[in-house]
């Protein structure tokens, strides 16, 4: 049985707007194990992006706990959160993912530089990872010289290279065409499983759920449903199930 990499307990995030308190995340609890790939879905305003921001240690929860590799985010100061992001979290974003003046290889290696782990072995691993993502001939290309799909794959390599406990992806397919989107998420899922990381993907596109192990559905800040069986997830991805 794999260990719990991420645990969320009774998480609440409130915002004050015109004197009214709004709970963007309202008492959510779940766990993600190492090697498990989870999709976080829900309509706009359901709280999934806020949830992802908290999991990424970019936002402090109002109440509740978020444990990454056993460390409670709520108890950390900014310096410790930066360290946690660097060491324990891998992140891919919707767009503007890469540092524009670093090549594909340099972008991936940068995570190792940040963690003071850039050595010969790290360089080899970085090249291997990029090669596995079909980018062996793009190592020296700048982001502007690559397609959106290639850039996302570089971002995936960067998110995984430093062996983080948790890998977070915010709408990784938002700027891709369907074929490339499937390809990217499939590769992502494969690497999450293979490397034994806990992966969480926020997506609007339910078709992408066919590659995940579990789907967490949020609405109005609450976790309203969890799809766990392969049958349910397949039907959700195919649009058979109404979510």
């Amino acid at each position: 049985m794999s260990s719990v990499a991420l645990e969320v307990r009774d998480l609440v995030k409130s915002f004050s707007l015109d004197g009214t308190t709004i709970n963007a995340v309202d008492g959510v609890s779940f766990q993600v194990r190492s090697g498990e790939f989870v999709a976080l879905v829900g309509p706009s305003g359901s709280g999934k992006t806020t949830m992802l921001s908290i999991l990424a240690a970019l936002l402090t929860p109002t109440d509740g706990q978020v444990l990454i590799d056993g460390q409670d985010l709520a108890q950390m100061n900014e310096k410790k959160r930066v360290k946690l992001r660097r060491e324990k979290i891998g992140f891919t974003f919707q767009s503007n993912n890469l540092i524009p003046y670093l090549t594909a290889r340099e972008n991936v290696e940068f995570m190792l530089r940040l963690n003071n782990k850039l050595n010969r072995a790290g360089r080899v691993r970085s090249d291997e990872l990029l090669a596995r993502l079909g980018l062996a001939d793009r190592l020296h290309n700048l982001p502007a010289q690559m397609s959106g799909g290639q850039q996302q794959r570089v971002a995936i390599a960067r998110a995984l290279i430093h062996n983080p406990a948790v890998v977070l992806a915010d709408e990784p397919t938002a700027s891709l065409d369907t074929a490339r989107a499937f390809q990217v998420v499939e590769t992502f899922a494969h690497l999450i499983h293979e490397n034994g990381r806990a992966g969480i993907m926020v997506t609007h596109d339910l078709r992408m759920c066919q590659f995940v192990d579990r789907v967490l559905q949020m609405q109005d800040g609450k976790l309203v449903r969890v799809y766990e069986s392969k049958q349910e997830i397949r039907e959700l991805a195919q649009g058979v199930l109404k979510h």
């Binding site: 990424a56 970019l58 310096k79 930066v82 360290k83 992001r85 660097r86 060491e87 979290i89 992140f91 974003f93 503007n96 993912n97 890469l98 540092i99 524009p100 940068f110 995570m111 940040l114 963690n115 960067r158």
Partner: peptide, 13 residues
């Protein structure tokens, strides 16, 4: 700004 945002989000101080 977005680029600096990415740098900070991935753990640059």
């Amino acid at each position: 700004v977005p680029q600096i945002g990415v740098l900070k989000a991935i753990g640059s101080s």
